[in-house]
């Protein structure tokens, strides 16, 4: 277990940098994690982060297919918004655990 300080707040993260307590997350914190990941957050990003957090809070599994059906962005845009490993990166910025889904 490790701690990191974002936007003046100390948060609990695991060894990969994912939040262990999603309730510690704030939009300001998200901006700083995003900067670490090389992503600049737009309104669309925040809409997506909110979608991911809602999904997590209601206990639904995250999948790339779910993103496509979210109605927020299509998958192509999603890949462009969080380049590299989009689902891993976006969940890290959203302050929720790394998704365990294979699809």
């Amino acid at each position: 277990m490790a701690q990191k300080t974002y936007a003046g707040v100390t948060v609990e993260v695991n060894e990969e940098g994912y939040f262990t307590d999603p309730s510690q997350w704030t939009p300001e914190i998200a901006k700083e994690i995003a900067a670490e990941e090389g992503v600049e957050l737009t309104d669309k990003h925040f809409e997506m982060l909110e979608y991911l957090r809602n999904k997590f809070n209601s206990g639904d599994a995250l999948s790339i297919r779910g993103i496509n059906k979210s109605g927020i962005v299509d998958v192509k845009t999603f890949y462009g918004m969080f380049p590299g490993a989009p689902l891993k990166k976006s969940t890290k910025i959203a302050g929720i655990p790394k998704p365990s889904s294979c699809v």
Partner: peptide
């Protein structure tokens, strides 16, 4: 939530 084949190809392309 495993996509169908054509949908999978679309996701991979995207």
């Amino acid at each position: 939530d495993i996509p169908g084949v054509s949908e999978f190809l679309e996701l991979i392309d995207a």
